[in-house]
Design a protein around this nucleic acid. Structure first.
Length: 423
RNA sequence: GGAGUGGUGGCCGAGCUAGGCUGAAGGCGCUCGCCUGCUAAGCGAGUAUGCGGCUUAUACCGUAUCGAGGGUUCGAAUCCCUCCCACUCCGCCA
């Protein structure tokens, strides 16, 4: 959420940045609601002030045995008026907040202006895409051959886009999770295991609600939502808190299953593990001071990249353009891993800084040592990495001509020393 | 799911069946100052947040907030209603 005061003071900039995203927003309406809200409050405060003053007097007079019936009647009228304004005021406040909750974050200046992912900019590339001497198979064929993924049975017990991992498949997935968590822990990230079901407040805090309800799985009768990413649960651990400066930066790594309805992506990536309703992910989450957020974002990006480097998987890093940056983010880097079967790079991580956007929504604040003033923190997060996509990238990049898959060296300690997955 | 207890400031904890002087006693913690050879103790002062106003470095003023929402009242932490949450016991269950 943006600060209404900031919006008013920097209206042109905010309008331009919103337009760069190709987002629609009625700023005139917002401003008029805000003005209405302020004048209502001024009027209301004045009346309440008067009421408080007179009420105290009434108490004193009554105690002294004086007559209060006349003032009482007058105050009754004042009370009615206050009640009426209260209703108007709170509806203006609600209206304003609801509007603000649908306004996307302001993009950082470095974000390239562009329409869609075609306009994303290449930041760097790591590793050489290997050219196998044979025709690279897609991961679903490899997995089928090895019996490590059971797409049919996954669908049988649930629905499409749900998959069962079998045998070494399950083990490889688990190895990846542990490997990733251990790697991040070495870099100072504290591990967190948080709830997968969260309330609407948490979803509003990180920006999934109110705008993107259709993307979420909801447990209607309990009024809880399945998290689409651990970002939601981990970031919101600090909601409505005022942190000590020394507690910053908060650095967490968190494994979770993630649940996404993938509304609007029917027919996309229907085969294989690329786009599942449920997938595993190790998420990195930071809460920082404003002045540290840029360097902490870079560090977080490197933390995500090191996983691919250790796994020796070729990748590239893209700076998302204005049209492709998500609603809550101020700037985003995507890491894309090489997939030999499709000969393309596919997203495997998304690392973003949110400025104080989420912190305002979730009310995550901090106080500098010796200062009285409270400031909003900055939040940062990124996948480190999407485990399912890492799994499939390994199958494709480490596949051998005979259908077996070599286990990346760094994973072998997590696989009881297994070097090759074969039939 | 059944029965019971309870939700007050960073924490503990008064106040809540006599509704006003209680943003809220007291204690702890913390901050600053004093004192002290050092530490401890002691002494003094301070110590919630949102919104609005005014300044804009502070300060200050108004208002709201004692789980949430609503009601009664001139006035509610205190009375009434609804909901939420936590804890204990029973049941169930990993």
């Amino acid at each position: 959420m943006l600060d209404i005061k900031y919006i008013i003071a920097n209206l042109d900039e905010v309008k331009k940045k919103t337009a760069d995203r190709k987002a629609q927003f009625d700023f005139d309406l917002l401003i008029s609601i805000d003005e209405k809200r302020k004048s209502l409050q001024a009027e209301n405060d004045l009346l309440k002030s008067e009421r408080n003053r007179v009420s105290k007097e009434i108490g004193a007079v009554k105690k002294a045995g004086g007559d209060i019936s006349e003032v009482q009647a007058k105050m009754r009228e004042a009370g009615d008026k206050i009640a009426a304004i209260d209703i108007e005021l709170s509806s203006a406040q609600t209206e304003m907040t609801e509007m603000l909750m649908t306004l996307p974050n302001i993009l950082n200046d470095e974000v390239p202006v562009g329409g869609d992912e075609e306009d994303n900019e290449l930041l760097r590339t790591w590793g050489e895409p290997k050219e196998p001497s044979f025709e690279a198979k897609p991961h679903w064929d490899i997995a089928d051959g090895l019996g490590i993924l059971d797409f049919e049975r996954g669908v049988k017990i649930s629905k499409s886009r749900f998959t069962a991992y079998m045998g070494y498949g399950a083990k490889l997935e688990r190895a990846l999770i542990n490997f990733m968590l251990d790697s991040h822990a070495e870099r100072g990230y504290q591990e967190v295991l948080a709830p997968y079901l969260v309330n609407a407040e948490a979803m509003k805090g990180t920006g999934q609600l109110p705008k993107f309800e259709e993307d979420l799985f909801k447990c209607e009768r309990d009024d809880l939502y399945l998290i689409p990413t651990a970002e939601v649960s981990v970031t919101n651990l600090y909601s409505n808190e005022i942190l000590d400066e020394e507690a910053l930066p908060v650095k967490h790594c968190s494994f979770s299953a993630c649940f996404r309805r993938e509304a609007g992506s029917h027919g996309k990536d229907v085969r294989g593990l690329i786009r599942q309703h449920q997938f595993n992910k190790v998420e990195l989450v930071k809460v920082t001071k404003p002045e540290d957020s840029e360097s902490e974002l870079q560090e977080l990006l490197e933390s995500a990249e090191q996983i691919l480097q250790k796994l020796k998987l070729p990748y590239r890093v893209m700076t998302l353009c204005s049209g492709d940056v998500g609603f809550s983010a101020a700037k985003t880097f995507d890491i894309e891993v090489w997939l030999p079967s499709q000969k393309v790079y596919r997203e495997i991580s998304s690392c973003s800084t949110f400025g104080d956007f989420q912190a305002r929504r979730a009310s995550i604040r901090f106080r500098r040592k010796g200062e009285k003033k409270i400031e909003f923190a900055h939040t940062i997060n990124g996948s480190g990495l999407a485990v399912g996509r890492t799994f499939l990238a390994i199958l494709e990049n480490y596949q051998n001509e005979d259908g077996s898959v070599t286990v990346p060296e760094v994973l072998r300690p997590y696989m009881n020393g297994l070097e090759v997955i074969k039939i």
